[in-house]
Amino acid sequence: MSERLLAEFPDEHAIAGAIRALRETDHRVLDAYTPFASHEVEDALARRPSRLPFAVFVGGMCGAGGAYFLQWYLVAHLYPLVVGGRPPHFPVAFVIITFEMGVLFASLTAVIATLVVGRLVRLTDDVQGTAGFETATRDRFWLAVMSHGPGEPLRELLGKLGASRVETPEVA
């Protein structure tokens, strides 16, 4: 039966080496927990780059398109009042609000996507309660690994790879 373990590493290089080493074995590296966005760990995990910018582009275009349509529909179609001798449909004047709404919806999409994809709208999760895990937001680097077989051999392997501490995650 497979078991999930959490290993604490003193610094970036240690955890990066451990990740590369573990990838050769058939243990599954679930995720790393780092106090800051470390490039080394990211390269080591070698996951697909985030597709968030694409979502943001789509959100931005919807915002801009929707804003332009709304302005045209209200000002040029429903009640086409003439002001200052300008024709009711006056694209030059619609550009600014279109741009602003494009930026607004793009930003909202970015933040909401981050919260959703990062599953951030929560107070706690499965690893939060593990003993000593608070150092993950201080100076230590934690690694979550799913053992292939029983947990024991993985525990020693992690020790050898430089883990200063290995814990089993507490389901609070």
């Binding site: 709208v121 107070l123 706690t124 999760d125 939060q128 309660g129 609070a172």
Partner: peptide, 18 residues
């Protein structure tokens, strides 16, 4: 350290935001 928040607090949190 003991978990700061119980498991059910997530749902309460989301309901509050909603």
């Amino acid at each position: 350290m003991a978990a700061l928040y119980p498991r059910w607090s997530n749902t309460v949190y989301r309901l509050a935001l909603l």
